[in-house]
């Protein structure tokens, strides 16, 4: 069979996928680009061409810069925490102890809990008057009086990150654990004989096995954290004083609450561009790691 026939056949087999992708992603994406240069409303009148107005207005508003910083902050802290706690948990689960199998199985629970349920659950836990966190901390004596966790900008962000981290660190842990189990035992014992200390053993023997999968997890988690909407929507709606408002929430407000499809689209494209840059930057790193891990 000739090479061209094989290629043609492959494209034919891809056809259903391509049609779907163009219909539900490609075309909407192009239309978003078109809308972003107009002053269209969401429903009703077709807008007229306004050039770069929307972009200029969005990029120069203080709301945008503030929200961008909030989003980056959320992504940076939550992903870092998830990676660190996840790897620590994996190292622990790789040790031998009674109940290890059960504990490993339990790790899937937070990850399986739907995001909305997770957000709702933590909102109840953080409730300032009747929440379990206030109750637990005062009963142990760590807190004198009940606090408004989601009502203060500083604690609201930390509370959100904690909730997000609780749901996502187990996934990192399970991926890392699977990688750890691939580390050949004799290499570890050899390094013990050589007298390597725990840190060096982790750094030079174990980490190379972890690096590949972890970087992939890191990329996925960062992109998701950058796009975050649902957990914040349910827990704070961007409050207090917009201190937890992320880019996705800002786009929702602009395009749907205020019904300005045009400027909403331009804002959405700015966000898209940022995620793309982020992904490309990561992609370069992934390639490097994939090369060294193989």
């Amino acid at each position: 069979m000739s090479g061209t026939w094989l290629t043609t056949r492959a494209w034919l087999l891809m056809l259903p996928l391509l049609i779907v992708m163009i219909a539900v992603i490609g075309w909407p994406m192009m239309d978003t680009v078109r809308l972003s240069f107009t002053d269209s409303k969401l429903v009703g009148t077709q807008g007229s061409f306004v050039g770069l107005d929307n972009y200029v207005r969005m990029l120069s508003s203080t709301n945008f810069t503030r929200t961008l910083v909030t989003t980056l902050w959320f992504a940076l802290i939550s992903v870092t925490a998830e990676m660190v706690i996840g790897v620590l948990a994996a190292l622990l689960l790789n040790q031998e102890f009674y109940g290890r199998t059960v504990l490993r199985a339990l790790m899937i629970l937070p990850w399986a809990l739907p995001t909305i349920v997770n957000a709702t659950l933590w909102r109840l836990i953080y409730n300032p008057e009747y929440g379990a966190l206030n109750a637990a901390l005062t009963q142990i004596g760590l807190l004198d009086a009940y606090r408004s966790w989601l009502g203060e900008p500083a604690t609201a962000m930390i509370a959100l990150i904690a909730a997000d981290c609780w749901k996502n660190f187990p996934l990192v842990a399970l991926i890392a654990l699977a990688a750890l189990q691939a580390v050949p035992r004799d290499i570890v014992s050899a390094s013990l004989v050589d007298g390597a200390n725990a840190w060096n053993r982790f750094r030079y023997v174990v980490l190379p096995y972890l690096a590949g999968p972890l970087v992939v997890a890191l990329v996925l988690r960062t992109i998701e954290a950058f796009k975050v909407f649902d957990i914040i929507w349910v827990m704070t709606r961007g409050g207090p004083a917009n201190s937890t408002r992320t880019l996705s929430i800002l786009v929702y407000q602009e395009a749907f609450s205020f019904q300005r499809a045009g400027s909403g689209a331009s804002l959405a494209l700015i966000v898209t561009l940022m995620v793309t840059l982020l992904a490309i930057a990561y992609g370069t790193v992934v390639k490097k790691f994939a090369g060294s891990a193989a």
């Binding site: 786009v251 395009a255 995620v275």
Partner: peptide
């Protein structure tokens, strides 16, 4: 796979209209 990273907000308005 690259489309996986597109934020849903970037597709939402045209999808809504369509």
């Amino acid at each position: 796979i690259g489309t996986y990273m597109l934020p849903p907000v970037a597709l939402a308005v045209p999808l809504y209209m369509a």
